[in-house]
């Protein structure tokens, strides 16, 4: 039986979003992303340059690829009715080729609006081997009410009416 689509009523503070595993991340994954985005920065595929010239500990997983995974973990959770509105993150530490990334999110707040609800979350990316966090951040997703109308498309952010 297909799982029911997520609605605002299904969400509570403290809830963990199903984590997303990406990896082990190989040089080939990184090269594929570099070629796809025409990003020729050698620190992602030229190991001697990265380690000997730039004195880095290895080949770096692109921040631009990690941010895709942050969107995915949320989109997988809210699809098909919800919307990933805001994703905010900091690049605090490097992730190196060979790592498996564990992309996580946890609900920190909910807000019921007139036509739909918002959920705020803490998010991040951990090295699955040691749990080290590299990309902490926050996110806001919009979710329809179970018996409510679909979300506005294109997504229209809520208008706050001053109290």
């Amino acid at each position: 039986m297909a799982e029911q689509a997520l609605s605002f009523e299904d969400v509570a503070v403290g809830m963990d979003v199903p984590a997303l595993a990406r990896g082990p991340m190989t040089t080939v994954h990184l090269m594929r992303w570099s070629a796809c985005t025409e990003n020729w920065h050698k620190i992602h595929y030229d190991r001697p340059f990265s380690m000997e010239h730039d004195k880095l500990p290895g080949l770096l997983i692109h921040g631009s690829l990690k941010q895709q995974f942050l969107f995915q973990v949320l989109e997988n959770w809210v699809a098909p009715r919800g919307w990933v509105w805001k994703v905010n993150f900091q690049f605090r530490a490097m992730n190196l080729v060979g790592e498996t990334l564990s992309v996580w999110a946890r609900v920190t707040g909910t807000e019921r609006l007139a036509d739909y609800g918002l959920a705020t979350l803490d998010i991040g990316i951990r090295n699955a081997a040691d749990g080290a966090e590299s990309t902490p951040g926050t996110a806001t997703v919009a979710l329809p009410f179970r018996a409510g109308p679909p979300l506005p498309s294109p997504f229209a952010p809520p208008v706050k009416i001053p109290a």
Binding site: K86, N88, F89, F91, T135, G137, S153, P154, F155
Partner: peptide, 11 residues
């Protein structure tokens, strides 16, 4: 240094 970003997605 790339410090991170805030991304808003509309469509």
């Amino acid at each position: 240094l790339n410090g991170g970003a805030e991304i808003e997605f509309y469509r």
